[in-house]
Simulated assay, not measured.
Amino acid sequence: MFDTFLTRKLKIKYPIFQAPMAGGPTTPELVAAVSNAGGLGNLGAGYLTPEQIRNTIHKIRELTDRPFGVNLFVLDQPEESEENTIENMSKHLSFYRHELGIPQPPLPQKYAESFEEQVQAVLEERVSVFSFTFGIPSPDVIQSMKERGTLVIGTATTVDEAIQLEASGADAIVAQGSEAGGHRGTFLKSAPNSMIGLMALVPQMVDHVSVPVIASGGIMDGRGLAASLALGASAVQMGTAFLACTESGAHPAYKEKVLSASEDATEVTRAYSGKAARGIQTKFMSDMLLYPGEIPAYPIQHAMTKDIRQASAKANNPEYMSLWAGQGLRLAKDQSAASIINETIDQARKAYH
């Protein structure tokens, strides 16, 4: 029942992928714990320097000899935002800095790590899986990964995106339903026009591509796993389910929010990063709805709010932190990653009988 194309290909026991949550939650301990329990752990490396990527991969390898993946954000160059858009936002954000008692920093010299250099680090480390989101890397990147025996997985929020990913050489595709927490992987249309629920998205995607589909969005337990496999998915990807677990690197105040919030507590916002992402509602998100100007594009806004998010975390104040989470919140648990996987498998078995 849990034997799928992807479990065979990756030599893993269960078709459960832990979502690669960038920005701290995916510690080496979490990635390794999921892989050791029979799933596929994934490192969210989108914000890491090439050196940090190498070091983290080495740490994961000290903790597991099982397959795991590394995920990057496709970013050729930052989208242009006009100087006055950036300046106006900088002035607006000074209010939050004042409130948090931190100085106004100079504008960042660079807004994101070099995707090419990050890719180079992943290539050199020859990991089992390379996944990406926000677009499609160049054919050279995909080819180089495959030549090293790395399975390549892209993220799609619509069937058309999945078709493009398959044409570009992706070995499998994450179907990201609108319920999913974190950044939207949309790259063909605008994010609001690509909000398809997972139940509707998976069977349509399965029917239009010949590569395996991984269901992602709102899956928190064995019922979600059983339903996804019944819809034709080859595996599931679970993020919010692991956010509050023992090995997660999420801030304690963030974990507390995840464990106490309900299914209607999230919304999609561009306030923190300039790119649509689903998270638990905060004061910062509500305030930014009233901002009269334009929000700078990703990754500019992400770099500009970084000091605010960090100061907020230091002050244990979740209201200015980005609390990415999906709509399955009420099902989140504070327990080990291994017990989450074991319970998910037990529940899925029961659902099938």
Rank of each mutant, 00 (worst) to 15 (best):
D3G: 00
T4R: 02
T4A: 07
F5I: 14
L10C: 04
L10R: 00
L10K: 01
P15G: 11
I16A: 06
A19Q: 03
P20R: 00
G23V: 09
P28Y: 01
L43E: 05
Y47A: 11
Y47F: 15
T49M: 10
E51I: 13
R54I: 10
N55T: 14
I57V: 15
K59G: 04
I60M: 08
D65H: 15
F73M: 14
F73R: 01
V74G: 06
Q77Y: 15
E83V: 02
I86F: 01
M89K: 00
M89P: 00
S90C: 00
K91A: 09
H92Y: 15
L93F: 14
L93N: 10
F95E: 12
F95H: 08
E99H: 06
E99A: 09
G101M: 04
P108Y: 07
K110E: 00
E113L: 05
E116H: 11
E117C: 01
V119N: 02
V119I: 15
Q120P: 02
E124T: 03
V129H: 12
F134L: 05
S144G: 00
M145S: 06
K146W: 03
G154K: 05
G154H: 04
A156N: 11
D160G: 09
E161A: 06
S168Y: 08
A170F: 05
S178N: 11
G182M: 04
N193S: 14
I196G: 05
A200D: 10
V202S: 05
M205P: 03
M205N: 04
S216H: 05
G217W: 07
R223S: 04
L225Y: 04
L225W: 10
A227C: 08
L229Q: 09
L231A: 15
A233I: 07
L243S: 08
C245T: 15
C245G: 11
A250F: 01
E263D: 15
D264M: 07
D264P: 01
T266G: 03
S273K: 00
A276S: 13
G279M: 06
T282E: 04
L290V: 02
Y291F: 14
G293F: 11
G293M: 07
I295H: 01
A297H: 14
I300S: 03
H302M: 09
A303S: 15
R309G: 11
P318M: 15
Y320D: 09
S322Q: 05
S322W: 04
G326Q: 08
Q335L: 05
I341T: 02
T344F: 01
D346C: 02
R349C: 03
A351R: 12
H353R: 14
